[in-house]
């Protein structure tokens, strides 16, 4: 049972000076999910995100946010969204509090209590009255999230949210994003060029390259399709012959024998090997990294 759709993108295209940058992007976000937007630098992630928040006007296609058309009902639609596009640039000569106040004045019904609430939520209440110019990058990132959450959005869009954070900061950010989706019920769209990033925090993922979405699916399913089993046994060549009778042997080298992952049949295959006197030392189901996936989908193009 799918949760209700909060953000629906249909047939989004953008042509700049005769060159088609975004070539028909469609996807939907559901309540309470973290949606990953994965692609190499220059794939069009940021351009797409800018179109989602009204900074860039699409050449064609529609963006519906909470049931409102972004183009025709801008103010109603944009009210449902909180975002950080690229770096969270704030006014450095104002304090964190004043920055939040500044943006709160642009939204109806957001008062000092809400500002305090989001400041606490991102753990910035100690330094909130200091000037932003004295903040570390991590604190700025958190202030950026605070301003995105200010208007109680249904959809949160974070462009490379872990950029420039240290490992502890990255882990913290990941936990925070999961918390927002699971506890607060937000739809979170996270873009990244880092596979591990997306793999660790997203429910679903869209893979983007050259202005197109190559695949949109749950992280698990995308991974399972490509799952493999690594066998180590002695004698190895005997094992390979026996396994080839049952399934496809994808590769056999010093790493072991690699076959597709079929959980239901694994035990039977193993029994067959054992019966034939092969000493099975190691059976390891292995999920592919998204990197493998990406190479598969783009036909050999690598990320970065």
């Amino acid at each position: 049972m799918m949760k209700p759709v909060t953000l629906a993108v249909h047939g989004l295209r953008k042509t700049i000076r005769g060159k088609e940058i975004i070539r028909g992007v469609s996807f939907a976000l559901h309540e309470g999910e973290v949606f990953g937007f994965l692609g190499p630098n220059g794939a069009g992630k940021t351009t797409t995100i800018r179109m989602l928040v009204g900074l860039i006007r699409p050449t064609s296609g529609t963006v519906m946010i909470g049931g409102y058309d972004l183009h025709r009902e801008f103010t109603e639609a944009i009210r449902q969204i909180g975002c950080i596009v690229e770096n969270p640039e704030m006014y450095p000569y104002l304090t964190g509090w004043e920055n939040l106040e500044h943006f709160a004045r642009m939204m109806p019904g957001i008062g000092a209590d809400r500002i305090m609430e989001v400041a606490k939520l991102v753990g910035l209440e100690q330094r909130i009255h200091d000037r932003v110019s004295t903040y570390s990058l991590g604190m700025r990132q958190r202030l950026g999230i605070a301003q995105a959450l200010l208007g109680k959005p249904k959809v949160l869009i974070l462009d490379e949210p872990t950029n420039g954070l240290d490992p502890a900061g990255i882990r913290e950010m990941r936990a925070f994003i999961r918390f927002l989706a699971e506890t607060e019920g937000l739809s979170v769209l996270v873009s990244s060029h880092l596979l591990s990033e997306i793999q660790l925090m997203c429910d679903r993922v869209a893979i983007m390259a050259k202005g197109r979405l190559l695949a949109v699916d749950t992280v698990e399913r995308l991974l399972n399709e490509q799952a493999r089993v690594v066998w180590k046994a002695d004698p190895l060549d005997r094992a390979q012959v026996l396994l080839a009778e049952e399934t496809e042997v994808l590769r056999a080298d010093e790493e072991g024998i690699i076959t597709p992952y079929e959980p239901a049949k694994l035990a039977a295959w193993n029994a067959k090997l054992v019966r034939a006197g092969v000493a099975v030392a190691h059976i390891e189901p292995r999920l592919p990294t998204l990197e493998d996936l990406f190479i598969e989908l783009t036909g050999g193009e690598t990320i970065e």
Binding site: F74, E86, M106, M107, P108
Partner: peptide, 10 residues
């Protein structure tokens, strides 16, 4: 870059 945060308001 603050223009981005300014223009994504209702």
């Amino acid at each position: 870059g603050t223009i981005k945060l300014l223009l994504v308001r209702p």
